[in-house]
Structure formats: C-alpha cells, structure tokens
Amino acid sequence: MSAAAISANNLGHAYGDVIALHHLDLEVPPGRIGLVGANGAGKTTLIKILLGILEPTVGAVNVLGTDPADDLITVRSRIGYMPEGECLPKDQTAADFVAYAAELAGVPPNESRQRASDILTMVGLHEERFRYLGDFSTGMKQRAMLAQAIVHDPEMVFLDEPTAGLDPSGREEMLDLIGRLGGFGINVLVSSHVLPDIEQTCDWVVMLDGGQVLRNGPLSGLTETGVVELEVVDGAELVAAELRRMGAEVDEAGQTLTITSSPDDPFLAARDALAATGTALRKLGARSTTLEDIFLGEAPSDGR
C-alpha cells in the first residue's frame, strides 16, 4: 500500500476537445496540502477525479492507497468534501442537515445527531444550529459546509475554495479552522487560487497551471530561496569585498547586502565577514519568496 495520501500516474482528463489535466504525475504525503492554480488550471477536475465523480481519460489516481475507479465505496467511506459552490438545502436546519450528512456516511442516527451538534459547535454555529440553512449568511454557510465535510470524521477532506465569498474576518476564522484540521488527524487538500490562504494553512503545495504540475513539494522548500540578506550600520562596501574574497556573490544596495550564493553556509560567511571587518550588524535573515512570486515567475505569461 502506498504511503502517499494522494498519487497520480500519467493522469489526464479531457472534456471533449478541451484538455483539463495533461499527464499529471504526483506523489503527495499526508498532511495539509494546498492545491493552487488560476481558475481553469484543473483543480476542480482533479478533485472530481479523486472523488470518483469523473473518470480519468488516461492514467490513474490513488486516494489513501485506493484507486476510486477500482473501489469507489472504500474511497468515499474515508473522505469528506466541501465543494466550491453551495451544497446546503435551504429548507433544513443546520443540525438536521449535518446529522443527515453523518448518516449518509454510515454513522448511526443517534451518534449522528450528537456529532452534528459537536461539530456545529466547533465551527461556531452552536447558537444557529436550529436555524434553516436558507436563512444563513455566506460566512455561516461556509462553516456549515465545512461541518458536513468533517462530521463523519473522514481520514481526508477536500476543500474547494473554502474562503470564497468570505469577508476578511470570516476568511481568517475559516483558515484557522482549516489549519486545526491537521491536528485532528484529518488530512486536508485545500484547493484555492488565493495563494496567501495556502501559505497560511498548508505544509505541502501542488501548483497547477494549464492542467500540468508546475511545482509539487513542501511549502518551506518552495518559498526558501537560499538567499541571505544583511543590513549593516556602516561600511557595507568593506563587508561586500570580504564576502567576495571568500567566494560569495553579493549584491549591494546602500547598506544592505544580498548574498545570492556562497561556497559555504551564507550565514557563516556573513558572520566571518562582519568579524573580519569589524562592522556592526543591523539586520540578518533569509529572504523568502511567496507562492505568488513563484507562480508568477513560472506560469506561462499567456494568462492561462
């Protein structure tokens, strides 16, 4: 059995002549996974294949070690899903619907009602649980949608654009909830085109563009640049000269130096150069980049 939470092998899907996913190869570990990409990048198509709603045109996927095409029921027994659009019946109360969602996952009726109550409390809808879903605000609906996705304690939950339509405070609270899911032992796949949301909640990122994988790796590995920045009080040119003598490549901008490469650890090189020149340090740190920078730097510029 594969240890990967999700894997894809030469996965492709086309809607008629339109290719949505193009020979994807993926291996994603358990944890909080961000699936990022512009609208139309293939995120929702990938999620629908993982759910077994769509069948791959070519290739195969595995979710928690099982191919949905081979054993749909097993895969669906272990997952939850919060779709991008609404999924709530207007004429039911939150408590009734979330309990029903648990029953649909095989949780016996009595336990379902108890779990619905607990989960609605956890997502901040305790007071509103007996209100009809049709009367809910956008923020409350998003919370109820998250509640139905996790009420049956799935091993993995797919969240498709979970912060869509939320105001800033609602967005922060939703991201906080998503961040906590990992602590509950639930693997999370968050699909979003809002890259800061992914940076805030995930520890692994799959970047899609035009149906292809642009990047796939740990978030820290993607955002670390290996570049060190230091700002000195005075004498930046002396420090720069010393660093160059040590074999480092350095850019200068006023009293700020950027070590873009170094034969040894750039932090140690900076320390030695400062000591050798007797220069006072104001600031030292690694320069990190954002997912947005990476995406804009690597995505084709044709607007796909």
Partner: peptide, 18 residues
C-alpha cells in the same frame, strides 16, 4: 452574524459505521 468560534476540541469518531 458570522458567529464566534469556540474551541471545544474535536472528538474522532470510533464507533460503528453502517
């Protein structure tokens, strides 16, 4: 109207599944 989040913890479900 968005409500307030109270962290009352999360209980994994280990009971019967039908």
């Amino acid at each position: 109207k968005a409500g307030v989040v109270y962290d009352l913890g999360y209980k994994p479900y280990e009971g019967q599944r039908l």
